[in-house]
Design a protein around this nucleic acid. Structure first.
Length: 342
DNA sequence: CGTGGTCAAGCGGTA
DNA sequence: TACCGCTTGACCACG
């Protein structure tokens, strides 16, 4: 799918003066608070799996759940398009037990073919839709433990298979964190570089990295991204929670540069702290002042940026943010999910 | 029907 | 070394 090419510069003629504006799209992840019974993460735990005596029946149940998840994914994508939301993070729990050692003989993609064809068809009709994944926090490239690394690669392979199954070019579609600190951050960063060489190049190309809220800061993550040519996703909330130097703007050009070889627009994460006491936890909604402070700093630096909202109230947080943005003089609303910053 | 406990993963902190 | 908390959404047993 040839989607999300970087647009041309959005230049506006205003009283004979040219201003470069930044086009912003908002997105949300996995769940809609409005669309009822639309879970894409229905699951079966391994304990439940073992309780079903007939193994064939248990596998069949897994396939039913996976297909139901994919059909709800289609419903959600339709809902998103109807609401002008063209940026969406797909759940990593679409296929329960896909990577479990006890189901390694199960070809989980085969029974999903019909569902995948329906999704392919919808996605091909909407080439501007940007969808991606966020690997779970136990997917750890820099683990010093062999089986953790092997399981992580296995899980990344599943993400890659799903993207291929959806006929989406897998490049830069899967975000993840650097990993654990293991008591020595510098060593853990070098371990990432060591282990990176063990990851096949098609999986490498799928991955983008995000600064985290406890261990690997903007500077740490940039170090890896520049060294290994990985696009970096800046998480503003994580940066506030974890930094050696608070001044992120100094590094902004470097962040932009990590995307220079990508076909996708630069993206970032936006969320607000739940409270001063629970600073790292995500609030229900995004604080408009915090977001505007960010936008006013970066406007004009890129022609387009996609902002993933990580708020508890999901799509409702997106709608509320769009409503708040309407009152800001520097914002020019385009539709239900995108706007220009002047 | 609502709710607290359980599941799954691995890190991080404490004793 | 051993345990508990953290995180996430789903699901189950209980009342």
């Amino acid at each position: 799918m040839d989607s999300c090419k970087k647009g041309t510069l959005h230049v506006k003629n205003y009283l004979g003066v040219f201003f470069i504006m930044t086009f912003v799209r908002l997105g949300y992840s996995a769940i809609s608070t409005h669309l009822k019974n639309s879970s894409t993460s229905k699951t079966m735990t391994y304990t439940r799996f073992l309780q079903i005596k007939d193994r064939e029946a248990a596998i069949h149940k897994l396939e039913e759940i996976s297909n139901a998840n994919l059909m709800n994914l289609l419903r959600l994508l339709r809902y998103n398009v109807a609401n002008d939301i063209l940026f969406y993070r797909i759940s990593s729990k679409l296929i329960p037990l896909a990577d479990h050692e006890d189901t390694s003989d199960w070809n989980y993609m085969e029974p999903l073919k019909d569902s995948l064809v329906k999704l392919q068809s919808f996605l091909s009709e909407h080439p501007n839709l940007r969808v991606d994944f966020h690997a779970d926090h136990f997917v750890l490239i820099n683990s010093p433990t062999k089986h953790v690394l092997i399981n992580s690669i296995k899980t990344l392979r599943m993400h890659h298979r799903i993207l291929k199954g959806l006929r989406i070019a897998p490049e830069h579609r899967c975000i993840m964190h650097v990993g654990g600190g293991y008591g020595d951050k510098e060593k853990a960063l070098e371990q990432f570089i060591q282990n990176w060489a063990l990851v096949s190049s098609d999986l490498q190309k799928m991955i983008i990295l995000e600064n985290d809220d406890k261990t690997f800061s903007l500077l740490d993550t940039l170090y890896l991204c520049e060294k290994l040519s990985i696009p970096m996703v800046f998480d503003y909330h994580h940066h506030l929670a974890n930094h050696a130097d608070a001044d992120w703007l100094k590094q902004w050009e470097r962040v932009i540069d990590t995307w220079q070889f990508s076909n996708l627009p630069i993206k970032m994460h936006i969320s607000s702290p739940k409270s001063e006491q629970q600073f790292r936890a995500h609030a229900d909604y995004v604080d408009i002042d915090m977001f505007m402070a960010f936008l006013n700093n970066i406007k004009g630096s890129v022609d387009q940026i996609d902002c993933m909202i990580e708020a508890k109230q999901k799509d409702e947080a997106l709608f509320r943010l769009m409503k708040d943005l309407k009152n800001r003089p520097e914002i020019e609303i385009v539709d239900g999910g995108s706007f220009y910053v002047n």
